[in-house]
Amino acid sequence: MDFKGAYTWGNFQFLLDGFLVTLEVAFISILLSFAIGSIVGILRYAKIPVVSAALAVLVEIIRNLPLLLIIFFTYFALPEIGIKLEIKWAAIAALTIFEAAMLSEIVRSGLLSIERGQIEAARSSGLTYVQTMQHVILPQALRRMVPPIVSQFISLLKDTSLAVIIALPELTHNAQIVNGQNVNYIIPIFLLTAVMYFAVNYTLSLLAKRLETRQRSPKVKVNSQQAAQSLGA
């Protein structure tokens, strides 16, 4: 093991460049997958004829496929039908598709966790379905969804390493290139790589635990009658 040779400024900067790509891909994928997953989850919860059933089938198919297969599909198969994506956007597309399916289930489960009585009370107070969703269901459901959503984001960040298979210049890919310089660099470089992943993921896990603790503490429930009165004011 050659820690001194491995931990040069040039190698560290190269790894940092890869880590920035990892964070960029993860950040964009998180935003897109959360938006798409939320829409899909709400549509499934609404039980719209045909639409909800079709989305349920699509979500189940994606959730039961390996992410690696989806990465292969976006990078190698899509060009066969005329859709060619750059490596970074192929990785983002694959991660977004996979994570959106996962997040849609979290959103749907969060919405289903709200007691039916609150929904009925809100509707009987004069709120429309959309107003009930906006002012009664979603505020409570979001608080319950935050911890599992953060945990899913942690998984997404770690899953970016799978994009090494299509040569995305992310952290794991760059670590392999540095290791190729000298066999004695393998342990030092992988240790440094692990520390970089751990630093971000552990911070997010602490955030998830903190949010989960706050979720378990007593909270004031949304009063549907007050919501109806405020809307009518």
Rank of each mutant, 00 (worst) to 15 (best):
60 E>M: 02
61 I>Y: 00
79 P>F: 08
85 L>D: 09
86 E>D: 15
87 I>Q: 02
20 L>K: 07
51 V>G: 06
50 V>Q: 07
36 I>A: 12
11 N>M: 09
53 A>R: 15
28 I>R: 05
71 I>A: 01
81 I>S: 12
77 A>V: 11
25 V>R: 13
77 A>Q: 08
79 P>L: 11
99 E>A: 15
16 L>S: 09
48 I>Q: 09
22 T>R: 11
88 K>M: 14
85 L>K: 01
31 L>G: 05
11 N>K: 11
84 K>I: 07
43 L>I: 13
84 K>T: 15
80 E>V: 10
49 P>A: 09
93 A>G: 02
47 K>F: 02
100 A>G: 04
100 A>R: 06
60 E>G: 05
36 I>W: 06
69 L>T: 11
45 Y>C: 05
32 L>F: 10
58 L>E: 14
78 L>E: 05
8 T>W: 04
97 I>S: 04
45 Y>K: 10
24 E>H: 10
25 V>N: 05
46 A>E: 14
43 L>T: 11
74 T>K: 04
85 L>P: 00
54 A>M: 12
18 G>K: 06
67 L>P: 09
16 L>A: 11
45 Y>W: 13
34 F>L: 15
62 I>R: 10
85 L>Y: 01
90 A>L: 03
26 A>V: 00
56 A>T: 06
68 L>I: 14
68 L>K: 08
20 L>R: 10
38 S>H: 10
45 Y>L: 06
55 L>M: 14
69 L>I: 13
93 A>D: 04
87 I>C: 00
76 F>D: 11
46 A>I: 12
81 I>K: 11
28 I>L: 10
59 V>Q: 02
54 A>C: 09
37 G>M: 02
13 Q>C: 03
30 I>K: 03
52 S>M: 02
28 I>E: 09
10 G>S: 14
30 I>N: 02
66 P>T: 14
52 S>T: 02
91 A>V: 13
11 N>F: 05
91 A>C: 11
72 F>G: 07
57 V>F: 12
17 D>N: 15
38 S>E: 06
31 L>T: 14
95 L>A: 03
66 P>V: 13
38 S>L: 13
33 S>P: 00
77 A>I: 08
87 I>N: 00
31 L>D: 08
57 V>M: 13
21 V>A: 04
96 T>L: 00
11 N>W: 03
48 I>M: 05
60 E>N: 15
68 L>H: 07
70 I>Q: 06
99 E>N: 15
43 L>V: 12
75 Y>A: 07
67 L>V: 12
72 F>C: 07
19 F>S: 03
94 A>R: 03
40 V>G: 05
33 S>V: 05
67 L>T: 12
97 I>Q: 07
96 T>I: 07
61 I>G: 02
92 I>S: 09
31 L>F: 12
86 E>N: 15
67 L>H: 08
92 I>P: 02
55 L>P: 08
92 I>L: 07
83 I>R: 11
65 L>F: 06
36 I>D: 08
24 E>S: 12
41 G>T: 06
37 G>W: 01
32 L>G: 06
36 I>Y: 02
